[in-house]
Amino acid sequence: MAEMATLWIVRHGESTANVAASAAEAAGSELIDLSHRDADVPLSDTGREQAQATARWLAGLPEDRRPDVAVVSPYLRAVQTADLALDGTGIPVSRDERLRDRELGILDGLTAHGVRRRYPDEAARRDRLGKFYYRPPGGEAWTDVALRLRALLGDLRRDHEGRRVLLFGHDALVFLTRYLVEGLTEEELMALTRRYVIANCSVTGWSADADGRLRPDVFNDVGHLHAQGARPTREDEVHAEPV
């Protein structure tokens, strides 16, 4: 099977919705104070700093490690992250809707408390089905996101065999890229989601081994943010480690 030489995925920088969601959860609110649809949520000032720190990390990579191509979620927070991180690199960039964030349907804009209060039956159904297979009305299950990501990875393998590919996406996409590339089970994937929060502008990556199979290099790494003096978000304080 054709394979890329290297694959990275970077979560977008901190967004204004990340800030609003943290504030709403801390206050025990049912609703997150959002003024944009999900696709149009921009980066916060901290998110822009994180993206600029990611640019400095990319600039510091050896020539034989720098990405050949970048593929970006069309959501504004990912586009802005990629624009800042790739500015001046000359790396070809394309957008692909299969990298968009998971769609939450009727639960969009609600905190965990809000879901339990407004849709108790849905909260109970989610508990029964489990995080992986639960699909909110009008939204996507993790399995739905995996299907579109699986198709994207197949195209990347075909079109960029032997090349270094950099993705910009969202937290669920990071977890699911591990699931697909490493052949994880549902149980292994869910264990990762319980242990880790994917940090803003974290880097997760794989490199092809001697047999041409992608093997994990790093997961949820934010060392470049600290090294470049970018302000960490609260999520940056959770586990990040090489694998």
Rank of each mutant, 00 (worst) to 15 (best):
Y75L: 12
H226N: 00
V238G: 09
G88Y: 10
R66D: 02
H224S: 06
D121I: 02
W142L: 15
G90D: 11
G114A: 06
E25A: 14
R125I: 07
V243P: 12
A23G: 08
E49T: 01
Y196C: 07
G169E: 07
R158G: 04
D68M: 00
N18D: 14
A23S: 13
L184A: 02
R135C: 14
S35F: 10
L149C: 06
A141C: 09
D33E: 15
A55P: 03
E182Q: 09
A172F: 10
R178K: 12
G13Y: 01
F219D: 00
L129K: 07
R158Y: 03
L104K: 10
E103Q: 14
Y179A: 04
R95H: 03
E49D: 09
W206C: 09
D38H: 09
T46I: 09
P242V: 05
R118A: 02
D68W: 05
A2F: 13
R157Y: 03
D144Y: 13
E122Q: 10
G13C: 08
M190C: 11
R164C: 12
A146F: 12
A20C: 10
V145I: 11
V41R: 09
R77K: 04
T81D: 08
A151G: 01
T81I: 05
S94Q: 04
A146K: 06
G60W: 00
G28T: 08
R95C: 00
G114F: 02
D38M: 09
R178N: 07
G183Q: 09
M4T: 03
V79A: 11
L129H: 08
W57L: 06
W142S: 13
R215Y: 05
H224C: 06
A17L: 11
R48G: 07
R65P: 00
I198V: 15
A112M: 07
V165A: 10
E241F: 14
I32M: 13
V115M: 13
S22M: 13
E122K: 02
E241V: 14
H113W: 02
I91S: 10
M190W: 11
R65D: 14
R116V: 13
G88W: 06
L149I: 03
R126S: 13
R11C: 00
C201M: 06
L184V: 05
T89Y: 05
L99V: 03
N18E: 13
R128D: 14
L180C: 07
G47S: 03
V218L: 15
A210R: 11
L214H: 07
R194T: 13
A230R: 01
T185H: 09
L84A: 12
L86C: 06
L31Y: 11
R148H: 04
A199P: 02
T233C: 09
T185W: 11
H170F: 13
D83M: 03
H12T: 02
R125T: 12
G138R: 05
D221M: 01
L7E: 00
L110C: 07
N200D: 14
A26N: 07
V238E: 11
V10L: 09
V181M: 11
A23K: 14
A210I: 01
S202Q: 06
G183D: 10
R98W: 10
D159H: 10
G13L: 05
E161R: 15
A24I: 12
A123N: 02
E25F: 07
L147N: 02
R163K: 15
L176Y: 09
R135V: 11
H224V: 03
R234Q: 13
N200H: 12
G88C: 08
S94T: 05
G212T: 05
E3M: 13
